Amino acid sequence: MRIAEVVGRVTLSRAHPRLRGARFPIVLPMTLAALRDGDSSRGDDVVAYDRLGVGLGDLIGLSEGGEAANPFGKEKAPIDAYCACLLDAISF
């Protein structure tokens, strides 16, 4: 799991039936320097699946790869990244 910042959203006109009712925020994974020191460096942008209701500027826990499909159980869903949690604060 990585920590990412929400920077935008994607709007779909049509979606896969398993993905209806969800949002798709655009997030930027944060480096350790960005989290600790406020550095502006970020990773590549990622479109994530969200049912938590994240907003612009929120920090989230981003699950990627095979783990991103775990919330769907045995029913498969075509996603590569999932908003696993909404972070209130980070301390080192």
Score class of each variant (00 low, 15 high):
residue 51 R to P: 00
residue 30 M to T: 00
residue 57 G to H: 03
residue 25 P to G: 06
residue 50 D to Y: 11
residue 77 A to I: 11
residue 91 S to A: 12
residue 61 G to P: 00
residue 68 A to I: 11
residue 60 I to D: 02
residue 22 A to G: 04
residue 58 D to S: 09
residue 89 A to P: 00
residue 90 I to F: 10
residue 41 S to H: 14
residue 41 S to L: 12
residue 68 A to L: 10
residue 48 A to E: 05
residue 86 L to Q: 03
residue 47 V to C: 05
residue 83 C to W: 00
residue 57 G to Y: 00
residue 39 D to T: 02
residue 81 A to G: 02
residue 41 S to F: 02
residue 42 R to V: 15
residue 29 P to S: 10
residue 47 V to W: 01
residue 88 D to G: 09
residue 42 R to T: 15
residue 30 M to C: 10
residue 71 P to E: 09
residue 68 A to Q: 12
residue 72 F to S: 07
residue 72 F to V: 03
residue 40 S to G: 04
residue 53 G to Y: 11
residue 36 R to T: 04
residue 20 R to A: 14
residue 17 P to M: 00
residue 43 G to Q: 06
residue 36 R to H: 11
residue 29 P to D: 12
residue 24 F to E: 05
residue 12 L to T: 12
residue 17 P to N: 03
residue 39 D to C: 01
residue 68 A to G: 09
residue 12 L to V: 08
residue 64 E to Q: 15
residue 83 C to F: 01
residue 28 L to G: 04
residue 32 L to K: 10
residue 65 G to P: 09
residue 8 G to K: 10
residue 10 V to C: 07
residue 53 G to S: 03
residue 59 L to P: 00
residue 2 R to H: 08
residue 88 D to Y: 02
residue 67 E to Q: 14
residue 81 A to H: 02
residue 33 A to S: 15
residue 22 A to Q: 01
residue 59 L to S: 00
residue 62 L to F: 04
residue 40 S to V: 12
residue 63 S to H: 00
residue 9 R to V: 03
residue 63 S to C: 06
residue 65 G to V: 08
residue 87 L to E: 06
residue 41 S to M: 09
residue 14 R to V: 14
residue 85 C to K: 10
residue 34 A to S: 15
residue 33 A to G: 13
residue 12 L to W: 08
residue 63 S to E: 13
residue 41 S to A: 15
residue 79 I to W: 02
residue 42 R to Q: 03
residue 26 I to R: 12
residue 7 V to P: 04
residue 69 A to G: 01
residue 49 Y to V: 07
residue 80 D to C: 03
residue 21 G to E: 08
residue 45 D to I: 01
residue 50 D to M: 06
residue 52 L to R: 14
residue 83 C to N: 05
residue 38 G to H: 07
residue 72 F to T: 04
residue 82 Y to A: 08
residue 71 P to S: 08
residue 64 E to D: 05
residue 15 A to I: 14
residue 90 I to N: 01
residue 24 F to V: 09
residue 52 L to H: 12
residue 26 I to M: 13
residue 23 R to Q: 12
residue 22 A to R: 09
residue 57 G to R: 05
residue 24 F to A: 09
residue 53 G to L: 10
residue 10 V to D: 06
residue 62 L to T: 02
residue 57 G to N: 04
residue 32 L to P: 03
residue 71 P to F: 12
residue 74 K to S: 13
residue 18 R to L: 14
residue 72 F to M: 08
residue 77 A to D: 05
residue 2 R to G: 11
residue 79 I to S: 03
residue 18 R to C: 07
residue 65 G to C: 09
residue 9 R to F: 13
residue 13 S to A: 12
residue 5 E to V: 11
residue 92 F to Q: 06
residue 92 F to H: 12
residue 86 L to N: 02
residue 1 M to E: 14
residue 8 G to L: 11
residue 35 L to C: 05
residue 72 F to G: 09
residue 83 C to Y: 00
residue 74 K to E: 14
residue 73 G to I: 01
